[in-house]
Write a protein that binds this DNA or RNA. Structure first.
Lengths: 166, 166
DNA sequence: TTTCATGCAAAATGTTTGCACACGA
DNA sequence: TCGTGTGCAAACATTTTGCATGAAA
């Protein structure tokens, strides 16, 4: 993985799983084996992923930890609702990333290698709030994606030697 | 009309149709009845629309001007490629709007009535370019959508008016 | 023991493709 | 004529749903 995700973290009192359990209890929903498995899997690594990525990860684990496709979709929606994940639409499908315990940020998206580079800018937030105020618009969030080609994909290279592939 | 689209226009030498024909010729593609019909329909009104909206409009016109679904999709992709339309992903599907002859802008999206409100900000562009420079990222464009609830939908009223935009 | 969640299969949605025929250049 | 575009039907990718069964509380 060649990505820089070092935006730091945000202080949170509970682990993602604890937070999700709290959310579930507050809605009289159940804390099931599958929901626990998904939260654990999702928060074990910081990266962008879609429903199929997650499903594949869950399917390759053994016995007890298998989760069906519908449950993956249903649980992802709940995690977004609970504020644990952020969802964005990329190339026609939903892509997810950590929200809980992770600072607000936006993305550069490379159209060659599909990489998502995170960046953080206080200005975006300020601008957003100013525009919204002007339109008497109640903000719930925003998505800013800058499309283009990343540094690596711009650098013309004749061939990828094994060393380059890291 | 509840929307403010008065961002003005950008000076262009050719009509959208002329511009598209130029594009087609430059790629040895053909100027067909269907392609002409679609460009005319699309540029007859300034509004946001998706493939199904356009198809419905085309299907309800008589005889000669009917265009099939695959051709609508194929032509929309060509119009985006030709720089006549801008595409954005909203709620899992592609939404289009005029690009040629229309100034750069971003959107506020109301999650209640689904309305898209346009706004223009030089700051977004500057910020975008600054961030890109910092990451040696070659920018091709960006999409900024501010999600939330618009002024009308915030004002509690007993009856909802029909949504006039995608 | 009473819900609510799960898994399965099937459906729904939005979009793309293979192919025979039509048509613009 | 030649080669590209069209329309049809079918395929596709992603996500959602109905329903019988299984498991939290």
């Amino acid at each position: 993985m060649t990505l820089d995700f070092s935006l730091g973290t945000v202080e949170v009192a509970l682990t993602p799983l604890e937070r999700f359990e709290e959310y579930l209890r507050s809605r009289q929903k159940r804390i099931t084996k599958q929901r626990r498995t998904i939260v654990e899997q999702v928060f074990s690594v910081h990266r962008h992923f879609d429903a199929e990525d997650l499903l594949a990860l869950l399917q390759q684990t053994v016995g007890e930890r298998k989760v069906s496709r519908p449950t993956v979709y249903r649980t992802l929606a709940e995690l977004v609702d609970a504020g644990l994940l952020r969802e964005m639409s990329l190339k026609g499908r939903s892509v997810y990333e950590h929200d809980y315990g992770y600072p607000q940020h936006d993305h550069l998206h490379c159209e060659k290698c599909d990489k998502l580079i995170e960046f953080s800018s206080e200005q975006v937030r300020q601008l957003r709030d100013a525009v919204a105020r002007e339109h008497q618009f109640r903000v719930r969030g925003h998505r800013l994606i800058i499309h283009g080609v990343c540094a690596e994909c711009s650098r013309p290279r004749r061939r990828l030697r094994p060393v380059d592939l890291v």
